[in-house]
Simulated scan of single mutants.
Amino acid sequence: MLFDLPDHDTIYKALLARDASYDGQVYVCVSSTGVFCRLTCPARKPKQENCTFFGTIGECIEAGYRACKRCHPLEPMALADPAIAALLAALDERPDYCWRESDIERMGFDLSTVRRSFKRQFGMTFLEMARQRRLRDGFEKLADGGAVIEGQLEAGFDSASAFRAAFLKLLGKAPGALSADPLLFADWVPTPLGDMVSVTSKSQLHLLEFTDRKALPKELERLNSFAKGRLGIGRTEPAEQVKEELSTFFRGSSSGFRTPLAYHGSQFSGAVWDALREIPAGTTRSYSDIAASIGRPSAVRAVARANGANQIALIIPCHRVIGADGSLTGYGGGLWRKQKLLEIERQYLPKRAKVNHHVTS
């Protein structure tokens, strides 16, 4: 897990030294090349600012990196689960291909076994992972100013209708219906725990959600109405700022977020969200704790509703709220992500606090 890793500088020194003691325990993701490697990779070493380190292959793949063809980091995973390794390698070779269940069967794998394995390891099926990667490629092409047909081809969709349907499902409107003069801009945000979508104005962040969150289409629909139909795709200063802050968060450098936020909720909800932002990284609170902190000790259920209505994930850290009995309770991004986020954030605890800290699983 990320919180078990040494600090960034220590691992970077190990990378430069090709320290074999880290082999199988730490992987480096290089933003300038889009690949992830073992620390012992013989390739020329990247600049430190281009490196992000993860403890598992799954985290590297979830962050959108492909396996290095020189040091072959997937090989150890193949020994543990050949089906996962083979399918990930196939996806890496053909990221623009429209994978189907028949392709998995043709490779000689049982569909139900593969589905369970991917769900357990990544929180999504192989087909969902492949579709997200294709859609992300098309999304990023549009964000860079490309035409719809360029985005369609970049994403590997066979037809314009299929590409429009995928966008419609995610953003609530087809690419051609996106505003050419937006007030709000959607952007794709790859993270170690899965892809996210941000929605920003030119001055504030309005939404940050995992792309597989069930409430996302409705949230985007409300923001589109708020912008009077002027929701488009593009990059803004707040969008770039939140990407950088998320990168430093997952890298273990900082748990602070300074991107300006825009709340979409009642005054009560805003008070709850402010209270959530006061919870230190690596610690948790109960709904009753939050209710008491805002001077409304009897409003526990209302606090829970406001917590669930949060549409700026991680930055407004609703994942730090647990049940009074210590259980994880619900989380729109999935309980597996909530568990991982709490584990990741343990690295931000003072060293003495880590000894007695316990996250309920």
Score class of each variant (00 low, 15 high):
D110P: 00
K354S: 07
C60A: 15
G330V: 09
E345F: 02
G194W: 08
D181M: 02
F210D: 05
C68T: 11
T52K: 02
Q132T: 12
C98K: 10
L349W: 06
A313Y: 07
K13T: 12
L328W: 01
K340L: 09
L127W: 08
Q25K: 15
V199C: 07
F167N: 04
L341C: 04
N356V: 10
F54A: 07
V114M: 05
T259W: 01
F257N: 03
R213A: 11
R285E: 14
L342H: 03
A215V: 15
F118Q: 08
K218A: 14
D19I: 03
E49P: 00
S293C: 08
E62K: 12
A271P: 00
A292L: 09
G123N: 09
P260D: 07
R230Q: 14
L87T: 12
H357P: 00
G323R: 07
C68E: 14
V242R: 03
G334F: 06
G145A: 09
V303S: 07
N50R: 08
G194I: 10
G332E: 15
L15S: 02
G24S: 10
H264T: 04
L261Y: 06
T284G: 00
A67N: 13
D92A: 15
L15P: 01
G256V: 14
F109V: 05
K340C: 01
C60N: 10
Q267D: 13
V148K: 04
G326K: 04
L261F: 05
S247A: 13
T284Y: 02
L88G: 04
A155Q: 04
A17V: 01
Q132P: 00
V199L: 09
Q121L: 15
S298P: 00
A313W: 11
S361I: 12
A20T: 11
V189M: 10
S327R: 12
A83I: 05
G64S: 08
C51Q: 06
K351Y: 00
A63Y: 12
L216H: 10
T248D: 11
A160S: 14
A20S: 14
F226D: 13
K45N: 12
R337E: 03
K228L: 11
D81F: 05
R94W: 04
K338Y: 00
I11L: 15
A304R: 14
A353L: 14
L127C: 07
L91S: 13
D4E: 12
T56F: 03
S102W: 02
V355G: 00
L15F: 02
V26L: 08
D19H: 02
S112Y: 02
G145K: 08
Y97Q: 12
E345L: 01
D110T: 07
L193P: 02
L127F: 06
L74M: 15
F250P: 01
I233Q: 00
Y22H: 14
K214M: 05
E244S: 15
R285I: 06
H357G: 00
W336A: 11
R94A: 13
M196P: 02
L171F: 15
K338D: 00
L216G: 07
K228A: 13
Y331R: 08
T284M: 04
G234H: 06
A162W: 02
L111F: 02
R18M: 05
A291I: 10
R38D: 13
R70L: 12
P175S: 07
I233T: 05
A215R: 13
A43N: 12
H319M: 03
I149F: 01
F250E: 01
T113F: 03
V114L: 05
